[in-house]
Amino acid sequence: MLLEIKNLSLQYVRGKKIISALRDVSLTLDKEETLGLVGESGCGKSSVAHSILRLIPANEGKITHGEIFFEGKELLQMEPEKIRQIRGKEIAIIFQDPFTSLNPVIPIGKQIEENILTHSLKTSSLQLKEKIFSLLEEVQLKETERIYNSYPHQISGGQRQRAMIAMALANRPKLLICDEPTTALDVTVQKEIMELLMKLQKNLKISILFITHHFGLIGLYTQKLAVLYGGEIVEEGSTQEILKNPQHPYTQSLLKSLPRKSFKKEKLPVIPGSPPDLSSLPSGCIFHPRCPKAIEECKKKVPLLRELKKFNRKISCDLAPFS
């Protein structure tokens, strides 16, 4: 197992409010596997990613309990210097918006170079330049010479994201976290970037934690899926099985509310209400205020994530399985 997150709980402090952003989140990721983490805005998807790399500023959030193992090493207790050597070298991350995640006043080539130098011994500048060019070619960028010398604003969004990927993969990490890598791009570019990621995953034998709110991409590109709602995992298992036959009412409602290919003009079903206020959680099951199947019991009893053998997955709903 490459990555194992055990009972991760994270709280943010905003003035007097305590926001419990993640509660007992457990995930596992094997070598060369792609795990999709899906959920609506503010459900804690990015918090999971940032927790793995310990990027949550100490004055804003605190991991109250839990453990994260990467190749058997515990990340949360690790010394800052050691975690710095893991960042970018063992685990790398790509962010949503390739424009804001590149430094606007430094040419692309220089930024990649700095990143390579962080984790490797000094090499000759010629070798370094060659390495950067081969990285740029690897992410299928044409005109590598021009890209090398360009500032981020001089190249297109797709090119920027490719450059970001080149930078993230420069030191051959074992795990790549993609935090909504295609959300800021248009659909055709989105497809190209995803295909590129999958190709690179095969060639470089890396694992990918893919964070998104896009079920279409999840279905096409991931093997395992975890559905996050209000900071809790509500359903987890094989992607294809969950998409074919969702068992948790939240997953069911989400999939129902996806637009389909149809020429009929009809209203899209929506999930009533809004995501829970994480500073004052509802009693019982976190989804009960919006759940179409909720019964009186759901308001009192907190459901635990349990194995559902028949459907080969984990689920946190006491009423499941719904046949």
Partner: peptide
């Protein structure tokens, strides 16, 4: 975000200060 990205790629604090 690019500072967060630099941090996530393992750049040291002096490098973030003076390079980024």
């Amino acid at each position: 975000e690019f500072i967060l990205a630099a941090k996530s790629l393992g750049l040291s604090t002096p490098k973030i200060l003076f390079f980024h």
